[in-house]
């Protein structure tokens, strides 16, 4: 009960923060929330189940294009497009998982990386349909939700907040469920879990599919809210980003991805005032985190403060 109250408070705080900030930062917060949704999806696989993927850009992009292409080519509306995005991400993850989950550890990382790279190259190859490297702007018809124009600040923020909130609460419910317990068991000791009657392959496939669904939803939301889809979102960089957020905020915590996304954004924002070398910052953050704080901020807190989900 206390846990649910705390997480609802986080959501309320985010909503209030959006309206207290300037329009510029309101849009930034919307962007953070969408990327944090992506990172929450990543966290299900990596943080809770121990599946270190380097291919989540594929699931993000699958959602982005599953939503964006029908809007662009067929004039689909935003709400069904979001649904398509979620399904697209889930399907891509399921398809990759069926093959990639036969491997583990380093091989799993490389296999997911290669599938994602193949997906990126496929977007380039079919550039007549996908817009290739340059991508495409989404027409205004596909950026209306319940009568509101998503290209304006307030509706955009509210939509991002709602998508984040649903994923946030769904993640909390999932990790506190029986299935959540099984996920953690697989992360902690797969061999032991198997001897408790748990089928590692199907469980991981289920997790990866859910993870892909959240990533796809985030990808679709990103395209619809910010009006653009492009192949750059399928590059390895978009597989690294959620990993960085999760590592920074704390793997295997519900609020970690959000915390990581906010902190990384602030860090880059602060650094841009002195230098444009944001890539260096991302790189240094990765190295420092792995070296000194592999559990992330919330993870380090949790070892002191038990009971944080």
């Amino acid at each position: 009960m206390k846990t649910w109250a705390a997480h609802l408070a986080v959501l309320a705080l985010l909503l209030a923060a959006g309206f207290l900030l300037s329009p510029y930062h309101m849009t930034n917060l919307a962007r953070i929330l969408v990327l944090a949704t992506f990172a929450m999806g990543y966290n299900l696989a990596f943080g809770y189940t121990g599946l270190l993927s380097l291919g989540h850009a594929l699931f993000f992009a699958a959602g982005m294009y599953a939503a964006g292409l029908p809007i662009w080519h067929a004039g689909l509306a935003a709400l069904p497009a979001l649904g398509l995005g979620l399904a697209g991400g889930a399907f891509a993850a399921l398809a990759v998982g069926v093959l990639a989950l036969r491997t583990a550890g380093v091989s799993f990382m490389i296999v997911t990386l290669m599938f994602a790279q193949a997906g990126y190259l496929t977007l380039l190859y079919f550039n007549a349909t996908t817009g290739g490297d340059e991508g495409f702007a989404l027409p205004a018809t596909g950026r209306r939700l319940f009568g509101a124009d998503l290209s304006t600040d307030v509706p955009r923020f509210l939509a991002a907040w709602a998508i984040f909130a649903v994923t946030f609460l769904a993640t909390l419910a999932l990790v506190r469920s029986r299935f959540g317990r099984v996920m953690v068991a697989l992360r902690e000791n797969e061999d032991r879990a198997r001897m408790l009657g748990i089928n590692p392959f199907t469980t991981k496939l289920g997790v990866l599919t859910l993870s892909g669904a959240a990533s796809g939803l985030a990808g679709a939301a990103y395209a619809i809210l910010f009006g653009y889809a492009g192949a750059s979102f399928a590059t390895i960089q978009y597989s690294i980003l959620p990993m960085l957020y999760v590592l920074l905020g704390g793997a295997g915590t519900v609020a970690g991805p959000l915390l990581g996304a906010i902190l990384m954004f602030m860090l880059i924002e602060a650094a841009t005032e002195v230098t444009s070398a944001w890539m260096f910052l991302v790189g240094a953050a990765l190295v420092i985190l792995v070296l000194f704080a592999p559990k992330g901020i919330l993870g380090a807190l949790r070892t002191r403060l038990r009971g944080l989900p």
């Binding site: 000791n189 061999d191 001897m195 408790l196 009657g197």
Partner: peptide
């Protein structure tokens, strides 16, 4: 049951047994 004790050290006693109940 394993020769070398192989419980989930990070989980509670309850969760350890609950996993077995779920899987059994």
């Amino acid at each position: 049951t394993f020769q070398i004790t192989s419980v989930f050290p990070g989980l509670s006693v309850f969760d350890n047994v609950a996993l077995a109940v779920q899987g059994g």
